[in-house]
Design a protein around this nucleic acid. Structure first.
Lengths: 144, 144
DNA sequence: TTTTTAAGTTTACAATTGTAAACTATAGGT
DNA sequence: ACCTATAGTTTACAATTGTAAACTTAAAAA
């Protein structure tokens, strides 16, 4: 699980999704797909690929032409990381509730659901009675 | 569930969390808290509050001084919305897996877990065998 | 009443992001 | 060997974001 300092922007994420799906890709391929998917200009795609490389999310095979770009991070890892990142910025007390809401409207396969249920069952054993709100700094009550 | 065009940035989110917790707040209060929580300069907080207002996430009571700011959106709704937003940008096929990973490391209360389990049980009835990857545009296979 | 403080408003400024054109160099076609 | 399309590199440019100082004005203190 590689750690990354730079964050991926939404546009960059779109690019990564197609490279993840293809395993590796040339910019020609990426441009073809993104033109269909997002109607971006070829230049836009090129810029984004370059930025992803600078940020360390892509490597290339060094070819002068028809270069192949490969992800340096696993898609599942990146997703897990991004989701955690979002969640950690939110009120810990409300997270469970929000996740329930989200799950209601998210498409999940039977396998997904069974897996989730397993994880939850295992968690229950050590689950706290309640989770405290962490929106305020420590000792803020002293501020009147 | 109010719909918002503008998105909240992470810094803005931090501000909202304290106002949500307090119910309503003057900038003096917010500044006090944020100085402790994030070590931000008072000006920074003022700017952020103004921007949140412009974006429609806060209203004020119109007082010339010691103005009270109130959220226009519910915290749970905002969280649900933000999480959904993040998830919808990801590969639908992998979302279930990522959520399981996230849940493993997220603090959840017993109540949260029971609730999640209820939601999942209800979902199982109509759950599909599998969820297709949606990273590529339609008919992209035709692109060789 | 004059001064001081601090709330609210304006202005600032660099980094990041979305979006893309322009330029350069090279592989493939003729 | 030369031309041309296009892959890769540079440059561009406005909007957003993080971060904050400066200014203005009104309330509180002296």
């Amino acid at each position: 699980m590689i750690k990354h300092n730079q964050t991926m922007t939404t546009s960059e994420w779109e690019i990564m999704r197609v490279i993840w799906t293809l395993g590796e890709a040339t910019s020609r391929q990426i441009i073809r797909v993104m033109t269909l998917k997002k109607d971006w200009a070829p230049s836009t795609v090129k810029t984004l690929v370059t930025r992803l490389q600078k940020k360390g999310y892509l490597t290339d095979n060094g070819a002068v032409r028809d270069r192949l770009y490969t992800p340096t991070v696993d898609e599942h890892d990146a997703m897990t990381y991004a989701l955690n990142h979002t969640i950690q910025a939110m009120c810990a007390m409300c997270v469970g509730d929000a996740m329930a809401n989200v799950i209601e409207t998210t498409e999940l396969s039977q396998r997904d659901i069974l897996n989730l249920q397993d994880v939850l069952k295992a968690k229950y054993a050590t689950a706290p009675e309640s989770v405290a709100c962490n929106c305020m700094p420590n000792h803020w009550e002293e501020l009147k």
